[in-house]
Design a binder for these strands. Structure first.
Lengths: 191, 191
DNA sequence: TACTAATATTCAGTATACTAAAATAACATC
DNA sequence: GATGTTATTTTAGTATACTGAATATTAGTA
């Protein structure tokens, strides 16, 4: 009813429905949402729930995000994390420093870390959620990376990316302190 | 209440809220959604409307889409790029080395670079496609980053993320060679 | 343990999203 | 323009999302 501030979603849904050449009734059948409700939503007379939106997206065989893309509010962004303000998870007793750079609003999407390994130290990680990928750039030192069945040794300037949805570990097998830049990506649903 | 089919959104919201170090009450204030409702949503006891979700996203200062992530499965992956095999775009004549680590199949989504700036050198980039973000970690040296209206000076250990869909540049204003790790993300657009 | 203060959850009432069914509108074909 | 057929909107009732207030939980302190 109100829909005071954010752009209306009704017209997008209607556009989608017509693009698929569906009537309110046919989309109602495919989605499980009543035609009456669909009508109200398209006319922006109601404020659909997520569950309803989800069903509609399924009925239209599209990603729910596509329906919401219209109501995004793009704002310019320029966030700085100073060295000293950065939250630090420090497993010092094991000789591994982990510094997280992007814990902010995007925590579920992309994270940037710096890892410092003292000689001989290693970091064992349990499997992350499905579709998680890790990207490592070795800045200094020599490390061994193991993910599931796979294993590799990397030196300065080397880069590796791997799926982190299996148990994996990183180990500094060299004599000097290793410095690694890591990016972790939690992929969103379907392509 | 029901929410049978689609992945629960409650835990994501809670994670986000805690990442921002907000209490239910403080988020309630920022978003305009009552703390009671927030509690119910986080516990997946209700089916929020998009209006509510939108307010929450605003309160968290994030994109509403970030709240709607799904899950899927995939095959294991383990790709290594050795230092010497890496494609190198070298603008040596300007004192800036750019090394690209992830040119492969994912180039349209996420790219990882290492940038080396000789003292005094700078790199000017035109606006990238809309929604592009850049993440910089300074490994060594001192740089100045400018994106649109914004500008900042960064030293070793500092991190910055900004929208790169405006003209932007990076400059080494210090006396030593600067080493930067950069991640560029091209966000997927709607439909 | 008792006492606060801060945070989170439950409760009862109200607002509203959702539905089925009825009413209306659009659109043919005679 | 009458009649049937299909598509959409309105209506009335029910289910439930949202809210403020009360209650419960947690954390810290003496």
């Amino acid at each position: 009813m109100q829909n005071n501030s954010h752009p209306s979603i009704g017209s997008s849904i209607q556009k989608m429905r017509k693009a698929h050449k569906l009537t309110l009734s046919s989309l109602s059948q495919k989605s499980g949402v009543s035609a009456a409700t669909l009508s109200q939503i398209e006319a922006d007379k109601v404020n659909p729930t997520i569950a309803t939106l989800w069903k509609i997206a399924e009925g239209l065989e599209i990603d729910i995000q596509s329906l919401l893309s219209g109501l995004e509010k793009q704002r310019p962004m320029f966030d700085i994390s100073r060295k000293d303000e950065i939250t630090r998870f420090d497993t010092e007793e094991e000789g591994v420093h982990i510094r997280v750079f992007s814990p902010l609003s995007m925590a579920e999407d992309l994270e940037v870390y710096t890892l410092t390994f003292k000689p001989g130290q290693k970091l064992l990680s349990q499997a992350h959620p499905a579709k998680t990928e890790e990207f490592l750039t070795v800045v200094r030192g020599n490390i061994r990376v193991k993910a599931g069945e796979n294993e590799a040794q990397l030196g300065p300037g080397d880069f590796i990316r791997y799926h982190a949805d299996v148990e994996h570990h990183i180990e500094n097998f060299g004599a000097e302190t290793a410095l690694i830049n890591m990016v972790v990506r939690f992929k969103k649903g379907g392509e």
